[in-house]
């Protein structure tokens, strides 16, 4: 499978990303990735009653990075913090069907960003 042989689900999330943009009154956020490898994801969350009331992302990266960011926000939205925290990068790629193998590591970091954002939220609360 070549680098850009993406399935329809990946292409759909790439073309029409869900929950993309800046969350103005976010309670917490986190950025993962590294500009020098070209993939950087920022996840912002708004929390009420220990649930993810709203979530948005901004990503610089390839089509896979954008699609996984979009899918991760879809999976997390409305979930309790405890549930959302359990979402793994693998869950995100499974939800999308499959990613080209080469993309699994560098472009599938949105769940890490989400987990970090939740950790930041809990830290801020203390």
């Amino acid at each position: 499978m070549g680098n850009t042989d993406y399935n329809e689900a990946v292409m759909d999330h790439f073309r029409n990303p869900r929950n993309m943009g800046e969350l103005k009154d976010a309670d917490a956020e986190a950025t993962v990735g590294n500009p020098s490898c070209g993939d950087v994801m920022r996840i912002m969350i708004k929390v009420s009653d220990d649930k993810i009331a709203d979530i948005k992302f901004q990503t610089m990266g390839c089509a896979a990075a954008i699609a996984t960011s979009s899918m991760a926000t879809e999976l997390a939205k409305g979930k309790s913090l405890d549930e959302a925290e359990k979402i793994s990068n693998k869950d995100v790629s499974l939800a999308l069907g499959e990613l080209p193998p080469i993309k699994e590591h560098c472009s599938n970091l949105a769940a890490d960003a989400l987990r970090l954002a939740i950790a930041n939220f809990r830290k801020n609360k203390k």
């Binding site: 680098n3 850009t4 070209g38 610089m60 990266g61 390839c62 089509a63 990075a65 954008i66």
Partner: peptide
């Protein structure tokens, strides 16, 4: 921005 997504 990232070139692969631009190319896509």
């Amino acid at each position: 921005i990232e070139g692969e997504s631009l190319m896509m």
